[in-house]
Design a protein around this nucleic acid. Structure first.
Lengths: 336, 336
DNA sequence: TGGGCTTACGTGTTACGTAACGATC
DNA sequence: GATCGTTACGTAACACGTAAGCCCA
């Protein structure tokens, strides 16, 4: 017995016992329904309908009973479908995101402003941590989304969507010798002690160190902090020059500091959003992704979600090689 | 959504969330269940089970709801299946059979003796009539079964099962000149007036007349009756010689008559059982067929029932040509 | 003769089994 | 390293659409 057969059965019963009309209503062929009805009757070893020749002219006693039960079945089936749709479209609950201080402080507020207006019932739980901690929370399914930067390896069960790019900015006090230079090189930076983000554990390779090493230089990192504002404080106090995400530096607010973009001497960083492959995206989650990474079309998102084995490999490779990133938008500056 | 998927779902839920065990219980492959579960979850856009890596370790909130609904669905489905099975296995009700006097009187009593013991609750409604009347009742679905003999054409919507064969017997009073003969020929019979069954209307050709005509003789049929006992009475009263079904003549009970089998000079007759193609056989009907025509195996019966177009043609042809009849058993003599 | 159901047939889809792979304890 | 789930792939079954056939009003 197939659900489709029950759908056909009810359609016939609801259309004056006309197979032709039932077929029209269901946008399918009349012989198809005819055949499935006969298969159903044959499986049940019962004539559900009374026939006059080939024409259906009535419902048998058993047929009534069967039709009633079939209605119940379809009703339950629809309910099952609705359960998940409603859940997927729910606008309340808890939406948890693990992210880094920089993203939480400088990239997310603008996004959440819109998002919260759309979903006022939704409690947003923003968890801060290192990339390691974020990854761990994601793997334990303690959070729905993770947002971070860096080349950390996430594993096969996690979907990783590149969202935007950003450059670093070198910060130093107004009276620092670097302020006299038109153009700053890696050699210049290597001369001074550096305060920046920590290279975040064994799973991640530091693209900053890499860039220095490539030209046979060794950066003198004297202090690291996860919080861009902490880094700025240490720079102000003369510990060294700071290297932070460009969006964490605002010439207007940080008037006592000078900032030089490193876009010509250091590689760009990519901020990505990740979640467990085996989690279904509720509507608000999709909306959030759209707010946070508007360049990702529905089709692209769907490709990330339903990637089969081969395309998954391709995607992983292209992400690995940052092939996608060339087309990624730069982060738009925005301050509260 | 497929019913099969719901069955798999429940099996997983009922087997400690083990896909492997569910597969064993259902005698199917483990990858098959795994895949269908993922298809179901994907269609519903919901994770029914909570996973630890690939292992299922729990049921999600929505999953509980879905599983409960799925149980209801399968329960209703089983009920639908039971409805018809119960009906098919019902042992009470009305079982109507239209037949001829000869069958009712001489062939059926033995069968009904057993059958009635098995189905004491079943009211058997035996209707007597001419072949024409029997056919008409069958076509109007006034009776479940028809049992008769003769070459009557039944039409495409009726299933006709050959049951057994019988010969005719020539009857005459003890002092009749035929009693002096060792062997009786058609020529001998043609010399005397004959009392026999009527040739039953335009739809049927009389095999008796045919046999005479083939050797350029014309039988002198002076009297016809549907009832073998009536025929015997007329024979006793000198209206002529009788030709009746062999099973209607009992040397012990009809001591005043002599009977000669015509098996060498007249063709055998076949008694068949017929019913509408669009009627499903209840269990007691199948049992009746088995009692009445024990040589028909379940497989053969099923072939008669589910014959497709080609085999239907073949069957019709083989019945038409009496190809089957060579293997049909002769009627076993039996008197009350 | 037209409307309605069935039969016939080709085709694209899919369920499922086997085998290989992968992860997890 | 054993157990359990997933991926891959071939095959057989099946649903469904088109077209033709059949029957009844």
């Amino acid at each position: 017995m197939k659900l489709q057969q029950l759908i056909y059965l009810i359609a016939i019963a609801d259309n004056n016992l006309s197979i032709t009309k039932a077929a029209e209503k269901l946008f399918t062929s009349q012989p198809g329904i005819s055949k499935q009805l006969r298969l159903l009757e044959s499986e049940l070893e019962t004539k559900i309908f009374i026939r006059n020749g080939k024409q259906l002219v009535g419902v048998s006693e058993l047929g009534e009973e069967i039709i009633n039960r079939a209605r119940k079945v379809l009703h339950e089936i629809n309910h099952i479908k609705n359960i998940s749709n409603l859940a997927n479209e729910s606008e309340s609950g808890n939406f948890s995101i693990a992210t880094t201080q920089t993203q939480a402080q400088y990239a997310l507020p603008k996004v959440f402003a819109n998002f919260h207006k759309r979903y006022p019932q939704l409690t947003i739980d923003l968890q801060q941590g290192t990339s390691e901690q974020i990854l761990s929370q994601l793997q334990k399914q303690e959070v729905d989304f993770a947002i971070a930067s860096g080349n950390i390896e996430l594993g096969a069960n996690i979907v990783k969507i590149p969202c935007f790019q950003w450059d670093r900015t070198v910060l130093f006090p107004q009276d620092h010798p670097l302020g006299d230079l038109r153009k700053i090189t890696l050699e210049d930076l290597a001369k001074y002690p550096i305060v920046t983000y920590p290279s975040m554990g064994p799973a991640e390779k530091s693209s900053l160190k890499d860039a220095f090493n490539k030209v046979k230089l060794e950066p003198n990192i004297v202090f690291t902090a996860r919080d861009a504002d902490v880094i700025k404080t240490y720079v102000r106090n003369g510990f060294g020059i700071g290297i932070v995400a460009s969006m964490a530096f605002s010439p207007k607010q940080d008037r006592d500091l000078l900032g030089y973009s490193t876009k010509d001497i250091l590689p760009r960083c990519t901020t990505w959003l990740a979640f467990n492959k085996n989690m279904f995206l509720k509507k608000y989650m999709k909306d959030f992704i759209n707010d946070f990474a508007p360049h990702i079309s529905k089709e692209q998102l769907s490709r990330y979600l339903h990637q089969d084995y081969t395309s998954s490999l391709q995607l992983a490779n292209s992400i690995e090689k940052n092939e996608d990133d060339a087309s990624l938008p730069m982060h738009q500056m925005w301050h509260i």
